[in-house]
């Protein structure tokens, strides 16, 4: 059974078709990255994948179950989101922020159980946040904050994590750090990752599969190595792109025309 199956999905809002007839299948324990120029419909697709938007046509199935048939709590135990611009409420500790991810499991009126607490501790440990668990979230650096947001999604213990531009605004070291720890979760824990990324080189290096969206439609869908080298990529971005190989890895370089 596929982890995620998007069937002929269209999303219309304000009279504009933001996503048009998208079909997509993501296997469990794999990483799929959605790329495409600004306005391609990546964020709309992400919002639909986590139930924040309703499909105008078509459906999204996660773990074989139609997302539209789930209530909020069930959905939060099935798929989690790392938003592009997370709200980080000052005054809250790192621990309490990550613990929000367990709410869908223990419910609103009960405190976290010992097993919930064990999961929170494990996530904090895996994402190197244990030492700063009592810090105010407002005092964290950009990299630490993004690790914390990823940790909250991990604490939801979902089979699928969806990330919208998880490395935007981070320096190179922290970009790699976030992507490496996600890759580790995919390999070691069988997590299914769907991410949107603007950096085509990193998209190609970390994802098993790339999906190129343009004007709401899927233009390319295939192995990372094939999509990165496809001439369609340059056409969608309307610019010259060159792919060079460094230590066996593809690097996508924009070239001035």
């Amino acid at each position: 059974m596929s982890a995620v199956e998007v069937r002929e999905l269209s999303v219309v809002a304000g009279g504009a078709t933001l996503v048009r007839n998208v079909s997509l299948t993501v296997e469990p324990g794999t990483w799929c990255t959605i790329i495409g120029p600004n306005g391609a419909g990546k964020t709309t697709l992400v919002e639909t994948l986590v139930g924040l938007r309703r499909a105008t046509h078509g459906s999204v199935h996660v773990g074989g179950v139609d997302l539209a048939s789930m209530n909020e709590r069930t959905r939060a135990r099935t798929v989690s989101l790392v938003p592009q611009h997370p709200v980080v409420p000052s005054g809250m500790t790192v621990h309490d922020y990550v613990a929000l991810g367990r709410m869908a499991h223990h419910g609103l009126f009960r405190a976290a159980s010992t097993s919930d607490q064990a999961i929170i501790d494990s996530v904090l440990d895996r994402l190197a946040l244990l030492s700063m668990r009592h810090r105010d979230v407002a005092t964290l650096s950009g990299g630490e904050r993004q690790r914390m947001v990823v940790a909250r999604a991990m604490a939801q213990s979902t089979m699928v994590v969806v990330l919208d531009e998880p490395i935007s605004g981070l320096d190179l070291r922290h970009q790699m750090e976030i992507l490496e720890l996600l890759k580790r979760e995919v390999i070691e824990c069988g997590l299914t990752v769907i991410a949107t990324l603007h950096d085509l080189t990193l998209a190609g290096q970390f994802a098993d599969r790339l999906v190129l969206l343009d004007r709401g439609e899927v233009v390319l869908d295939g192995r990372s190595v094939d999509v990165v080298r496809s001439p369609e990529l340059a056409r969608s971005y309307e610019m010259n792109l060159r792919v060079v190989e460094v230590d066996g890895l593809d690097v996508v370089v924009p070239v001035r025309s």
């Binding site: 986590v50 139930g51 709590r73 959905r75 939060a76 991810g101 709410m103």
Partner: peptide, 8 residues
């Protein structure tokens, strides 16, 4: 974000 965390 609250909705993605399971809150109606």
């Amino acid at each position: 974000e609250s909705r993605t965390l399971g809150l109606p």
